[in-house]
Each structure stands twice: as C-alpha cells, then as structure tokens.
Computed example of a mutant assay.
Amino acid sequence: MKRKFDVVALTLHMVLWIGVVIVSLPFVWMLLSSVKSLPDFYTFSFFPHSIDWSGYLYVFQQTNYLRWYLNSLIVAVCVTTSGLVFDSLAGYALAKYKVPGVTAVFLLILSTLMIPTEMLVIPWYVMGSQLNWIDTFWGVMFPGMMEAFGVFLMRQFMLGVPNDLLDAARIDGLSEFKIWWRVAMPQVKLALSALGILTFLGNWNAYLWPVIATTTDPMRTLPVGISLYASADNGGIQWNTIMGMSTLAVIPIIIVFLVFQRRIVEGIALTGVKG
C-alpha cells in the first residue's frame, strides 16, 4: 500500500514539475531574448549566441520607461491603499450596522459587478473631462479607489467578527472609528492581504482605462507605454527592447508573489468558502 502511494505521489510531482516548466518557459524565453542582439533574435535560437545589453540601454536612454514605471507604481500603491481603507469601511458598515435599507444598498453595490468595464469607460471619461481629470494621476486612479468586489469581500469577512467584541470595545469608550481600526481590522487581516494583493496586481497590469485616460507620454503607465512603443514606427519592431521592457515590468509582480505567496493562496481559498 505504501509503495502504491509513493508511485502516485511521484507521478503527481512529475506532472506538477512538467506544468512548472511549461508555465515558466515563456518567461525564460522572454528573459533570454532581452539580452540578444536584434539579428540574433531573428535566428530563432532559444539561447543567445552572446550577451547583448543594447536593448536595456535603449530602454533607459531613449524612452520614458522609468517615468512609466514610476507612474504605474504610484497608481498601484495609491489605489490599493485607498481600496483597503474605503472597502473595509463600507464592508464594516454594511455588516455591523442594522439600519433600514442597508441590505438594499449592499445589493445595489453588488449589482454593479454585472456591468462590464467596457460600458463604464464612457461615463468615466465624460466625468473626467468635465472635471479636468484627463491625463492626471487622479483621472487614472479614481475608478479603482473603491470597488464593489472589495466591498463585498470585506463585508463577508466583517460578518464573522463577533458582535460581543465590538460591544465590549464600545463599553470601554472607543469611538466607532477606533473600533473599526483597532478591533475589526485585525480580525480580517487575511482578507485585507488577499484584497491588497489582487488590487495591486490588477492596477499594475491595467491597460484599458489608463490608455483612455492618458494623452501624453509622461503620464502613461507601464502597460500603456510598452504597448504604444511596440506599435510605434521605430525603424522596425525592436523585439529585444520590448522583451527588456517586459522583463523589467514583471519584477514587482514576482516580488509580490514571493513575499506574499502564502497569503495569496490562503486568501483566495477563503474568499471561496466564506459565507
């Protein structure tokens, strides 16, 4: 029986390693292609014949790549911070305040999840134009500062915070804001971690709204900048440069995954079973 289980375990591990190789192969190819010369790239060899850093030098010397990188970092960090604060506040209020109409408000917020993003960009753009937010950081960030999914997620986890714990804090004289911050928030740290990771990654990779909301090169975010550079007339497609840009772009995602790997798995698992 033990030998049978060993064979099954070995087979599963082999299948998993094959999956790891298949998934990581495009990233390895992208990294190796970024240090090829352009003629070397068109030889279609997997490994470079010689290391060529000209693609990276071009990225830093001839493009606004560092500015795009900074823009994406600012947008991702600000939107994530705002989402964690306002989504948790709304989730706490919807879960713990039994006032008339609270269920209707929650259902109204939840119903917005059924609206495709493509249908929202027009009213977003009209509002941004009227308020002179187009081609500004605020214009790029405001649609994601508070999201229905985050409110739903935090509300579901806030329901699990014991009411007796909150009542004890009220008896001790804490204000409602301090109860939210010092009592409720520590109880839902796992949900906050999952929401923060998903929000950061989503905004780091966002393309549709930033490409609409930005009109000048210095305000572009990283996905928009790379996409427009790849489609521009630069004397032919500089694939080694594009691969260098893409390689540098995935560094924050890899860092977030390595640092918060356990939180990602636990958070996503709990979001599927929380009632």
Score class of each variant (00 low, 15 high):
residue 48 P to T: 01
residue 8 V to D: 00
residue 1 M to P: 15
residue 92 Y to F: 08
residue 12 L to V: 08
residue 136 T to R: 05
residue 171 I to M: 13
residue 170 R to F: 07
residue 55 G to S: 06
residue 13 H to P: 03
residue 100 P to N: 01
residue 218 P to H: 00
residue 51 I to T: 04
residue 50 S to C: 00
residue 270 L to N: 02
residue 139 G to Y: 12
residue 210 P to R: 09
residue 28 V to T: 07
residue 124 W to Y: 07
residue 105 V to W: 03
residue 106 F to Y: 10
residue 218 P to V: 12
residue 180 W to I: 01
residue 104 A to R: 06
residue 38 L to G: 06
residue 260 F to P: 07
residue 7 V to K: 08
residue 198 L to Y: 11
residue 129 S to C: 04
residue 124 W to F: 13
residue 15 V to N: 10
residue 109 I to R: 06
residue 181 W to Q: 05
residue 47 F to N: 12
residue 47 F to Y: 05
residue 55 G to Y: 07
residue 169 A to V: 05
residue 15 V to P: 08
residue 183 V to M: 04
residue 42 Y to P: 02
residue 8 V to G: 00
residue 82 S to Y: 09
residue 114 M to F: 12
residue 263 R to E: 15
residue 43 T to C: 01
residue 136 T to E: 11
residue 73 L to H: 02
residue 33 S to F: 02
residue 57 L to W: 03
residue 32 L to G: 14
residue 121 V to A: 02
residue 171 I to D: 08
residue 137 F to S: 03
residue 85 V to S: 06
residue 221 T to C: 00
residue 124 W to L: 01
residue 242 I to H: 02
residue 25 L to C: 08
residue 177 F to V: 04
residue 226 I to Q: 02
residue 87 D to P: 10
residue 150 G to S: 01
residue 187 Q to M: 15
residue 262 R to D: 03
residue 253 I to R: 08
residue 216 T to E: 02
residue 178 K to Y: 11
residue 11 T to M: 05
residue 76 A to K: 10
residue 258 L to N: 03
residue 81 T to L: 15
residue 177 F to M: 13
residue 270 L to H: 01
residue 152 F to S: 10
residue 79 V to M: 04
residue 22 I to A: 14
residue 27 F to C: 07
residue 122 I to K: 04
residue 275 G to L: 05
residue 165 L to E: 10
residue 3 R to D: 08
residue 32 L to R: 02
residue 199 T to H: 12
residue 72 S to R: 06
residue 189 K to I: 11
residue 139 G to K: 02
residue 192 L to F: 11
residue 136 T to S: 14
residue 265 V to G: 07
residue 12 L to Y: 10
residue 56 Y to V: 07
residue 178 K to H: 07
residue 6 D to R: 09
residue 172 D to L: 11
residue 237 I to V: 12
